[in-house]
Computed example of a mutant assay.
Amino acid sequence: MQQTPILLYDIDGTLLNVHREFILGIIERELSRYNIEKPDANTRSFAGRTDRGIFMELIGDVPNAQELLNTLMDKYAEAMARHLTREFIQLHNGAFESVEEAVSLDIPVGLCTGNVRAVAMEKVKTAGFPDTFKFGGFGEVSEDRNELPGEADREYKSLFSDRPEPGRYVIIGDTPNDIRCAKHFGAKSVAVTTGGFSEKELATHKPDLVISSLHNPKGWLKELGFKNFS
């Protein structure tokens, strides 16, 4: 009998978007507290990157960069918890339905996101998702997104007696980096066009499947070879 898949959702561009102006405002305020000049963040793309890598780039070459990085990530999470409200969030097509249907099918649901854990949880909570995401790989771990699926796997195994092979994981994201990290770990990859990349651009990176919305997870799981969800 085929084993149950384990879904790892990206957040930004996949489940939802937080308004860019809101995010940049918080980042700029936190940088200014430490007299760090904003290095033109408006022109940079943060898609598919980890918070650790983003903040390291924004900090630049300064004394005690590692200590400052950890402080800034903590302060950023605190500011998000204080100021993020539903009005700053845009949910993507099929996001709620996808997660709800997966849960109804007893499919384990986690996160694989460049956000630090506290910010990730604040975003999904504020967006209105139920307390569903119990494990994941998060952006404080590494500047390299390829490290995140392994972290999600370790967290999953720490919570459950199940010992899945990498091929049972399905990483769902909207950027080439989501596809790359899935391939690096040996997971299946579902690329969704709700972010800034087109179907053609995503297909270039050879995901297992490209979809236009998160609706009907039973359908795309069947296409991935999980026949018990047909």
Rank of each mutant, 00 (worst) to 15 (best):
P5Q: 01
D10T: 09
L16N: 00
N17A: 01
V18S: 06
N35Q: 13
I36E: 13
P39K: 11
P39H: 10
N42S: 10
N42F: 07
G48I: 11
T50S: 10
D51Y: 15
R52G: 06
E57R: 02
L58Y: 04
V62Y: 08
P63G: 08
E67S: 12
N70D: 13
L72M: 08
M73L: 15
M73T: 09
D74L: 11
K75I: 09
A77I: 05
A77F: 03
A79L: 03
A81D: 08
R82P: 03
G94W: 04
E97I: 07
E101P: 10
D106T: 04
I107E: 14
P108L: 00
P108Q: 01
C112M: 02
V116I: 15
E122C: 15
K123F: 04
K123V: 07
T126M: 10
A127L: 04
G128F: 05
F129K: 10
P130W: 00
K134W: 04
G136H: 07
G139E: 04
V141R: 12
E143C: 15
G150E: 12
E155T: 08
Y156V: 00
Y156M: 02
Y156D: 07
L159C: 07
D162P: 00
V170Q: 07
V170S: 07
I171Q: 05
I171S: 05
G173D: 06
I179A: 01
A182L: 03
K183C: 00
G186C: 02
S189M: 06
T193I: 08
G195Q: 07
E201I: 10
E201S: 14
L202E: 10
T204P: 03
K206L: 14
H215L: 11
N216T: 06
W220C: 03
K222A: 11
L224I: 00
L224D: 06
F226Q: 12
K227R: 09
